[in-house]
Structure formats: structure tokens, C-alpha cells
Design a protein around this nucleic acid. Sequence first.
DNA 1: AAATTACTTTGACATCGGTCAAGTTTCAGC
DNA 2: GCTGAAACTTGACCGATGTCAAAGTAATTT
Lengths: 229, 229
Amino acid sequence: MILETRHSVTEILSRQPLFNGLSDAELAQIAAGCREFRVRKNEVIFHKGDAPEGMHVVVMGQVKLFLPSTHGTEKVVHMCGPGSTFGEAVAFLEKPYPVTAQATVDSIVIVISNRVLLDALDSSGTLSRKMLASLSSRLHELLGDMEACTLRTSAQRVVCFLNQSAPAGESPSFEISLATSKQTIASQLNLAPETLSRVLGHLTEAGLIQVKGRTITVVDRQKLKSFAA
Amino acid sequence: MILETRHSVTEILSRQPLFNGLSDAELAQIAAGCREFRVRKNEVIFHKGDAPEGMHVVVMGQVKLFLPSTHGTEKVVHMCGPGSTFGEAVAFLEKPYPVTAQATVDSIVIVISNRVLLDALDSSGTLSRKMLASLSSRLHELLGDMEACTLRTSAQRVVCFLNQSAPAGESPSFEISLATSKQTIASQLNLAPETLSRVLGHLTEAGLIQVKGRTITVVDRQKLKSFAA
DNA sequence: AAATTACTTTGACATCGGTCAAGTTTCAGC
DNA sequence: GCTGAAACTTGACCGATGTCAAAGTAATTT
């Protein structure tokens, strides 16, 4: 990893929702305990089982969090885009990282050391509250993934994913631009890549979607949902 | 549910690790915002999708948290024994409960309203820190479950469960007393009850364990672990 | 204690999704 | 723009688990 100091860490942090509402002094204190890294595509930021350094913020790029298995396979737990944080939870426990973090493209990541983070939390009720909300949100998300993995069939999981990726509007038709490879999405949905490919094929045959590379067009939101049954 | 006021809520709360280190005044303030309920076996405390009331503390008995599915099946996410808390995470989000909570035996549960909890968190850094640790811990646990469900075979999941249930000591042989029905354990491990039964049968045939009702004796810890491979 | 209900076990069978293999397309680096 | 390496697709096959059914066992109620 290459140390990077060109940008103002304070400025970057202040743009994160988590750090909104903090005083300049508080922000400066946190920024002082940060390091900014550039990581290259496929570079591992930390391994499952490593001792925790601190909380990470993705400034630019994309980071994949996954559970590695013995036979080289992996289960993707979460994708972190710009603004996403990860590795917070370990700061409050004395346990190693429960996942491996790897950049999927060249990225810039800020690390806030545990000490600094804990100090900041002690001195700011606002930050504590936001951190609690952030962890709760992650917890809900994970429960949702659990639900998908255990209670739904492959087709239902894919349909669910497409719906979650839908833009805010209510129009029956919309377009999705996949943020990652289909391999990665398959892993997130706990499917073999082949299975994802086949399910997308079936949905296309049924006239519900159109797939062109990483762009998927959903023709009819409602019909898609009812297909899952 | 039957309102219950005989016991001192303050006293019960003070026994929970989460509330250690709080002043009497703070505790009293929290206790004033609590209700204590008795729930009977099989009674549902809240449903997935309900609006959140607050945080729950199991005083006595046992509560099952699960994801219900359409066809009556369910996936058990967590079992809460005396001292366990649940439903904290919703206090920090504006979302409905992500799981259903149901008593598995006659139980006593305390509910701390969201307002009171949030106020207490604002005024106590200690409590905030403990709550962060509690949520983080839950997150880790859930990741562990995810890992088990997605990366392990049925036999590996069962062996894993037996190991996790092992007492602290290092002796090669130990006895486990299951806290719930095998049905429930099967659901936690994301197995059909029949499959759990069969796996336990195989482990018994292999001379690795002995099963008698809800008591399982592990003959050799090491051999059991190596069986998973 | 008898009766009813729920839980567990066992067997036979079905199936969803994974694995392996081969071919095709897309992408990244030069 | 080439070229080699990934990524993706498609087909054939297989196996781990789930489902269904029935019998046996434990637990709870009356």
C-alpha cells in the first residue's frame, strides 16, 4: 500500500454522513489519527482473523467484504462503495476481523485507528448515536441476506436483488447497471455463477428482463415480483 | 400479556451486564420507562413488520427470534435466555422489527421504550459504549451463522454447533444439554429436522457422540472436529 | 394414569442447485 | 487494435438435502 497525503482527510471525513454535525475541532482530532491508503485492484486490505486496526472509510473505488473458505471459494457479504465504512464493529470488541476486505478496483481508503475512534465516541454523543444507527443498519441488512439465503429459491433471490437495485421511482420499467461482476453478485446471493446465469436466462425467456453485459432492463416490475411465486 | 409489577425492575436491570456502571439515578430513570410482562409459552411478543416499541430484556424463560416465511416454515435466528436483550437495533432506525419474537416457555420480559433508551444513551457514555459492543457482538454472531449456512455442509454445521456448545474446559469428552427442541436447533442450523436427526445418527454410528433425549455426550472433541473434513 | 398432542426417527423418493467441461464473449494490458 | 486471460454462458450430470409418509417416543393435559 502507498501512503497518500495529498487530499485533506478532514474534508473527506466531513463529507461522510457519519461525521456530519461534528465540530471542526473534533473532526481535526479524528483526522489526526487517520492514515490514507491507495490500494490496487485485488489488493487485500485485511484478512479474516487479522488483529483489528480500526475503522475504514472508502473514499474512492470499491471494496469487497467476504468470508473465505478452505477450498478457495468465498462468500461475499457486502460491497462497499465510496462513502461506505467497514470494520467499525471490531473496534468495540477484542476479536479479530470476521471477514476479509479486498479492493475490487484501484481504491483510496482511510483508516481511523481504534483509539481515536473510541475517544471521539466518548466525547461526542452525536457520533455515538450515528454509529449505533450505522451498526443497526448493517445488522438489518445482514438479516435480510440471511432471510434470502435460507428462505428463498434461486429465482426468488435474483428477483429480490433486482428489486432492491431498482431506482426510487414507481415506473414499471427500469434499468440497472451492475456495480460488480456477475460472479460477485452470484456469491452475494449464495449462488454458483452458472446458476445466476441460468436464472437470468429464464427471466429473459419469460420476457421479464433484458440483459446486455452489465446492464439489466426490467420490463415489468410487478410481473417480475409475481414470477417469484 | 399480563402486567406484572411485583419485582423491582431497577434491581433486575442492574443485574444485566449492559447496565452495569450506571448510577442509581440513571437506572431509576430507565426503570421508570419500563414495563414488565409475563408471556406464556408460544405467545408472540412481536411480529416481523410491527412498529418497534423498544428494547427487550429476558428476565426469565426463553425467547426465540425467527424469520417467518410464507408457507408456515421459519428460520430461527437467535435464542434469548435470561439476561439476553433483543430488539435494541430497531431503536436506532425507523424501521419495523426484522424478526418475530416468540416465547418458547412461560417467560418474563422487560420492555424499555425507545424514548427512554435513547435518552439514557445520550446521558451515559458508558451505556453507549456497551450498547455498541453489544450490537457488534450480535453482528459477529450473525456473520458466523452466515458462514455456517453458506460455506459448510450439514455435518460440518452440526459439528460446529456441538463445539460451540462445549464447556470451557479442555477435556476431550463433555456433555451438552440442549436448551431447546431439536426442531429449533435444526432451524438455527438451517437444516430440516430429519437431516439433523440423520447427522446425529451418523455421528453416533461413528462412535463420536452419544445421544439420549436432549443430552448429547461428545466422546472425543478432536476426532469430532476432524470428522467434519 | 389415560389420552392426546407434539416431537423425533427412519425410509423411500424427488429435486434444486452445484460441479465439471467446453465453448463463447468480453475485457485489460500491451 | 491485438492478444491472452477472465468472465460468462450453455449443456450434461450428480449428489446433498428437502419432502412426504409412517411409525415410534416423549411430554403435556385432563
